[in-house]
């Protein structure tokens, strides 16, 4: 999803980038790679090198900073650094020379984690992605408490929604009452085209442009940009 959003914006002539702040190191696969990347900024950072020396660019000109494969030791050093300097990413982002109108996505593992906190510290806008399952729903209040504590603007996005399932509908309705206008008006629908696109090494917006998911993604990107504009002014 992050990759699709970034690509949509890039095609609208924004400079976009993705920072993978996730030790799972899988984002590269969505950008067209066939195997996990070895190189990444985490390992280099642990060695105190310039962190963005390992940037890639996708076929659609999206800048990509992979996490890289790390062993347990390196990861621990990295984690420790993150713990010690909660503002690290925020400061580090200033090092990157980019045009003024650019959008960077930071992809994180599920909450709660150090990575999420680090990302939240750096971000202008937080998008919480959740699946309409009871477990996720129950965590929502904890997430919103956390967000209230850090006082950052946030949006909640429903993912993999299947309107045919009454449970999904109920949970969305409940979250609507609960989150009010924090909930994004666009939801990502569950669609077979998404895994199919991945298997074909394509983005879903190219693989199935007329699917509802592609429409959702376009709507979401527009909504996010609109919110960012509002925050700027």
């Amino acid at each position: 999803m992050t990759v699709s959003l970034a690509t949509i914006l890039q095609r609208q002539n924004w400079t976009t980038g993705i920072i993978e702040l996730d030790p799972a190191n899988r984002l590269g696969l969505f950008l067209g790679l066939n195997e996990l990347l070895e190189q990444g900024f985490a390992a280099h950072l642990a060695k105190r090198e310039k962190w963005c020396s390992h940037a890639y660019q996708s076929a659609d000109q999206v800048i990509f900073l992979p996490f890289g494969a790390v062993d347990a030791m390196t990861k621990q050093i990295f984690d420790h650094a993150l713990y010690k300097y909660p503002q690290w990413l925020k400061i580090a982002l200033h090092d990157i020379v980019v045009p003024p109108d650019s959008v960077f996505f930071i992809d994180t593992p599920p909450w709660p984690s150090l990575y999420v906190e680090q990302a939240c510290e750096a971000a202008d806008l937080i998008v919480v992605v959740w699946n309409p399952e009871p477990l996720h729903y129950l965590t929502l209040s904890a997430v919103s408490n956390f967000l209230a504590k850090i006082k950052k603007p946030a949006l909640f996005l429903v993912n993999k929604l299947d309107v045919r399932r009454p449970l999904h509908n109920d949970l969305v309705l409940m979250s609507q009452n609960h989150l009010a206008n924090l909930l994004l008006p666009y939801r990502l629908h569950l669609d077979e085209a998404v895994p199919e696109a991945f298997a074909n090494n394509k983005l879903v917006i190219d693989h199935a442009p007329s699917s509802q998911v592609s429409h959702d993604l376009h709507g979401i990107s527009a909504y996010i940009m609109q919110t960012l504009h509002k925050l700027d002014s």
Binding site: V163, R164, H189, L190, D191, E192, A193, A208, S210, S211, Q212, V213, S214, H215
Partner: peptide, 13 residues
């Protein structure tokens, strides 16, 4: 409208 096909695809229409 959204069309949900039995195969799991969706079509925005």
């Amino acid at each position: 409208a959204v069309l949900y096909l039995p195969q799991g695809y969706t079509i925005a229409c």
